[in-house]
Amino acid sequence: MRLGRLKLRPGRPIRWTNGQTTEGASAVPPKVLICDNEEILRTLVRAALEEDGYDLHEARDGDESLELARRLEPDLIVLDMMMPGRTGLEVLTELRSERRFAETPVIMLTARVQAGDRAAAEKAGVDHFVSKPFSPVELGALAERLLAAAAR
């Protein structure tokens, strides 16, 4: 399944790469939760992913990240590592302890990280690291790849 260049809009048929369409069925775009305390970063992540038609949501700190994750059950989480208060790592550890989030793909946004932090994040269940400032193309491609793998 390839979601990359498709614009998923409610009620609009989707044409998959094999030529089939979802005409008649109502397509639900994948939900993506963007967790970062910096508004500018959230805006740029949103701008990088908006073309792909995902259902985008934003959380401004660790607590809100947990709350929205539990309410929305997103298909992908883009998580800033260094949020004040509850860090991205703590959010992830808590989510992974719940069975429904055991497999949810997570992209961790990082500034320069120490090798130790990275190892801890990997242990906590990060699928991919993307360092800031990020390449919008690479972030978009990675989101697409992780969502496609999760849908299989």
């Binding site: 400032p133 390449s135 919008p136 193309v137 491609a141």
Partner: peptide, 8 residues
């Protein structure tokens, strides 16, 4: 395009 990064 993939080589381009932006920051505030």
């Amino acid at each position: 395009r993939s080589r381009l990064r932006w920051e505030h």
